[in-house]
């Protein structure tokens, strides 16, 4: 993680550093989700699941040491004048997410692997190359691509058709930061493929920003497949099992919400579900945060549990953000 990557999350609004890490790796607690929503980075949820805490902490320390951010209240930091200048100078190296929203997307890593392997297999097939190291070793990914490839390879025009579909998608990507050129450059095929270092040189983005651009591009593909699947039959066939978007609300919270919707008071929901009252309240906070249909007025009439400042404060914050 480059310091400019982390700096891009700061502004004049005081905020804690740790929730940024937890949102990036996808640690789902009310407090992290709330911090992400409040500071406008909740869409980065699970955008960097393999980011190491030591790397993140080291980067945060550098921002503090170099006075690019400063503490205004305990554990709360804002961008300094120096930080603002630094951001102005280096912002071209950073890509901010535009399409991706981590709570509302399917597993893009699987989609990435399926697509990357399909490109590699097709490219090598076209050039008669049979021995190469696959870009994905995942058993299910390889199996899926194998089935897909067997299905299409009898068609003499299949590579051309696949290329046309990829072109249809890439043509839809925004041009300001060369999203399509970048995406195509990340493909590996017969004697084609660049290392991450080369891609950094070519596109002038930090490695994390490249990853974010990739997420945006893949999100675009998922949306395209949902809207215009007839234009991309081969890609749809390849990815159809992977583009399902799960409900961002956890199953347990959904059950609580269902009972809440049926008018049960919170104490009854807790008793019926054999859960602690505090867990029921956590579920409602989760729903209130992630579903804009949540009825705050109804909560007043159904909340018969002893008052909790923690719950009330958080619910109020969520309501204010609506």
């Amino acid at each position: 993680m480059d310091k400019i990557d982390l700096l891009s999350f700061f502004n004049q609004q005081p905020q804690r550093i740790k929730p940024i890490f937890y949102v990036l790796i996808g640690k789902r607690t009310i407090s992290n989700l709330l911090a992400g929503r409040r500071n406008h980075y909740l869409n980065y949820f699970r955008a960097a699941p393999t980011l190491a805490q030591t790397t993140f902490n080291r980067t945060a320390d550098v921002l503090i040491q170099e006075a690019l951010i400063t503490e205004t209240a305990p554990e709360n930091y804002i961008l300094t004048v120096k930080g603002k200048q630094y951001w102005q100078d280096k912002r071209a190296y950073v890509y901010r997410l535009k399409k991706y929203d981590g709570l509302f997307v399917p597993d893009l890593d699987v989609i990435d692997q399926l697509l990357g392997l399909a490109v590699q297999v097709t490219s090598n097939f076209v050039h008669g190359q049979t021995h190469y190291i696959p870009v994905s070793n995942a058993w299910l990914v390889q199996r899926r691509v194998q089935h897909w490839f067997r299905h299409y390879k009898r068609n003499p025009d299949f590579a051309q058709q696949f290329m046309t579909e990829l072109a249809f998608w890439l043509a839809q990507l925004p041009t300001a930061q060369a999203n399509a050129d970048y995406m195509a450059a990340t493909f590996q095929g017969y004697q084609v493929g660049w290392s991450d270092l080369a891609l950094t040189d070519m596109f002038g983005l930090t490695p994390l920003s490249q990853h974010f651009m990739r997420l945006d591009n893949l999100t675009n593909l998922v949306q395209l497949l949902k809207q215009k699947q007839q234009a991309l039959p081969m890609i749809y066939m390849l990815l159809k099992q992977a583009i399902y978007t799960p409900n961002p609300i956890s199953i347990s919270a959904q059950k609580t919400w269902l009972l809440f919707g049926q008018g049960y008071p919170l104490s009854r929901i807790a008793a019926r579900r054999h859960l602690k009252p505090s867990t029921i309240r956590e579920h409602l906070l989760e729903v209130a945060l992630l579903n804009d249909q949540f009825d705050f007025k109804r909560l007043i009439s159904q909340d018969d549990l002893p008052a909790s400042a923690y719950f009330t404060e958080r619910m109020k914050s969520i309501q204010e953000m609506e």
Partner: peptide, 8 residues
Amino acid sequence: QTLKQLFE
């Protein structure tokens, strides 16, 4: 151009 290199 990259697509052409890959598939043609």
